[in-house]
Write a protein that binds this DNA or RNA. Sequence first.
DNA 1: TTGTAAGCGTTATCAC
DNA 2: GTGATAACGCTTACAA
Lengths: 335, 335
Amino acid sequence: MNIYDISTQAGVSIATVSRVLNGSDKVSDVTRQKVLEVIEKNRYMPNAFARSLGLNSMSTVGILCSDSSDVYLAQAVYYLERELRNNSYTSMLCCTGYTRQGKEAYLQLLLSRNVDAVFLVGSHFIEATPEGNSYILDAAKKVPVFILNGELAGDNIYSILCDDYRAANEMTDLVFNRGSKEPIMLYRILSYSGHKKVQGFLHSCQEHGIDDKEHRTFSCPGPLEETYRILSKIKESGLTFDAVVTADDELAAGAVKYAIRNGLDIPGDFQITGYNNSVLANCSTPEITTMDNQVEFMCTTAVSQMMQVFQNHRIPSRTMFSACIVEQNTTRRQL
Amino acid sequence: MNIYDISTQAGVSIATVSRVLNGSDKVSDVTRQKVLEVIEKNRYMPNAFARSLGLNSMSTVGILCSDSSDVYLAQAVYYLERELRNNSYTSMLCCTGYTRQGKEAYLQLLLSRNVDAVFLVGSHFIEATPEGNSYILDAAKKVPVFILNGELAGDNIYSILCDDYRAANEMTDLVFNRGSKEPIMLYRILSYSGHKKVQGFLHSCQEHGIDDKEHRTFSCPGPLEETYRILSKIKESGLTFDAVVTADDELAAGAVKYAIRNGLDIPGDFQITGYNNSVLANCSTPEITTMDNQVEFMCTTAVSQMMQVFQNHRIPSRTMFSACIVEQNTTRRQL
DNA sequence: TTGTAAGCGTTATCAC
DNA sequence: GTGATAACGCTTACAA
């Protein structure tokens, strides 16, 4: 069943059928009615491939993320997809893993499918060296690229990101205000946002006269139990600490485990802060003080920027927004 | 830059270029080399739309799920996407929400994009009445439909699901064996799998001589704090219970909260079991005994079944696999 | 082994 | 308002 069959049955040309399908007003009501009837009767649906070939677009965008089962990224993917669909775009999801190779290959894959735009979700995508990011610049020659929670300067590239530096700085300030004398920080890796968070932590330490601050940040890329082990090792090494500022809620949950297993009183002896305001912060008991980095806002902003770009509006190449602290029971005495 | 440009530059016909692109062996090495060179030089990529129009396929499948930010569904989406990509298919993700309307609309949307198959992830898709599922049967007339963790009989429909009845039954048995005298059960809603889990719980209660078992199952669709409230209410109502068997890890985390806030000793006074073996089970302290329902296996199986269907192999319309208990510290005294 | 030409099912530009 | 007809860029018989 194609447009020819419909045109024959309705006694009109395919051009007219096409006009009806695309809501052109240059069709008489009588004709339109007749055509619609035939379409309805046959449950005809126009062929998407032929349509895309003509229009050179399938109203589809690519979402690239390292791992869509990560609680934070899963949220982002969810909101992105919702907003895109609200704007009549469908989403192709590609999980790249964390290797440069994967990221490049799957970006290529999306481009080969002629997507209209690409969203890179998560700061993992940005490498430290310019050559490391050349594949993104290449992609941007074909379609607009939106980087969520990461930043890269370049033509046709738009970065939408949370001010992680300031957020981590404020979070560390909070911990000091609540009585910590010697906090440490746990982060995953020094990705774009990981780096910012560490800097924010260090700056707050500086302001509060912590001398050995450079030795108070620790990478912890592994799963939950590793967080526990790393904290135990830090303790054994002789470094003392009374608060753990972390780069995500899972790390914080690991720190809660450490505190409970060691019989530490939270938040009296030991404060903990998370990041991302995810379900993990609330699953934990006590509920973890965390940072709401506004994933939903980030995603709606990104999609709305995409729509603007498609309408040839000029938009800023960099949009930064602030996060806000959600204080719960790992920094504040429970009510 | 299209196939004509390449053919001109290489001094061959478009048919030959096409053959090279598609790895046909009916091309001489010399010609192939020349063509590949030109392709390389121009960084030519064939137009996906034209290609799909000719082949009537874009090697794309639709993944429909109610909410991809749900920890369990996010896992499933992740594994599905990975397996599909390994088999050279890309994934269109559509989150439908929980209304019948949404599910139907987005299934239509995917079909209108000419996907090669559809995956329905989560038991929410199956309605109690046959009319409620007619839209799935309709879809199956066009493309194979794979239902993950749900079941529906029909031509071209394949159900891959975990034996939730047996799993819940075994989990409840475990709780009895560990000394519980009066367990209760919390479930989200009576979806296909929700129903099975409740039945499994009831059967175990039956076996263990619990008389008022019908009054010991409770729906708890809301977020974490609601679980706490519901448990408090049950307590107030006068019903006593010493174990909570739940239908997912988040419910279990809520039960842990309830126990801790009430100063109950876990697992001595109070046992808790989760479901799904998600990160939430391990984030909690104590770590929650949970059910590994093998999401990864489910997804790889589904995708491999899809590949078989595409090769016109006959495969069973229903595949059920068993789950296995991951016992942790909410049922067993910590080592 | 290579080339010619006929689809694939739309959209869009012209005439009328 | 409507209808021919030419793109769109590929795959694939069939012919050579």
